[in-house]
Amino acid sequence: MNIFRLAGDMTHLASVLVLLLKIHTIKSCAGVSLKTQELYALVFATRYLDIFTDFISLYNTVMKLIFLGSSFSIVWYIRRHKIVRRSYDKDQDTFRHYFLVLPCLLLALVIHEKFTFREVMWAFSLYLEAVAILPQLVLLQRTRNIDNLTGQYVFLLGAYRALYILNWIYRYFTEPHFVHWITWIAGLVQTLLYADFFYYYFESWKNNVKLQLPA
């Protein structure tokens, strides 16, 4: 494992921990998109179908369990926790799931490495992960006051994607036959979606003002 990959996984882990920390300790999910969290739960559930059949490493299995467990528990908190659910911005978080899920499923049925259930689900999870942040970005744009933890959560997620791209560049030059077009293009699209957010995040940081996205 190279340093970019490890740093990418650690920022991904940090993003999830920041979000869980916010929800668990402040008992608030204000500004957090349930739609995005449900899409991530679906992403991990469809990508990690091999978790109990193919052993890659202890690290790999533990991280998969963490991402599955955290995404489903965040969804549980927002939907079921008697205090947390009250802070959910239901009227603002209006993005439709099927608007993202259906095109990704169709794309996975057409573009995949092999036409097997697992490979189609794997491609689907990559396409869906690429766009799963959209409901969250739309919600941030609508929310006038973005609290620090929510801003950091999205920043860490974007950093994780950018580090994965560096990881692929590194692996391409150091490992023979490391070519994965589906992963790379989906990953690149995903990272580009954060470009706008990053711009405003750094501007607010540079000027030391509260993060606000233009409507």
């Binding site: 990959r5 996984d9 991904h12 091999d50 193919d54 890659i56 490493s57 790999n60 991280m63 998969k64 991402f67 794997w122 994965y164 990881n167 692996r171 490992e175 036959h177 490391f178 070519v179 994965h180 992963t183």
Partner: peptide, 10 residues
């Protein structure tokens, strides 16, 4: 095997 190096990522 390219299948392994693809799936060792998260």
């Amino acid at each position: 095997d390219s299948n392994i190096d693809k799936k060792d990522e998260l």
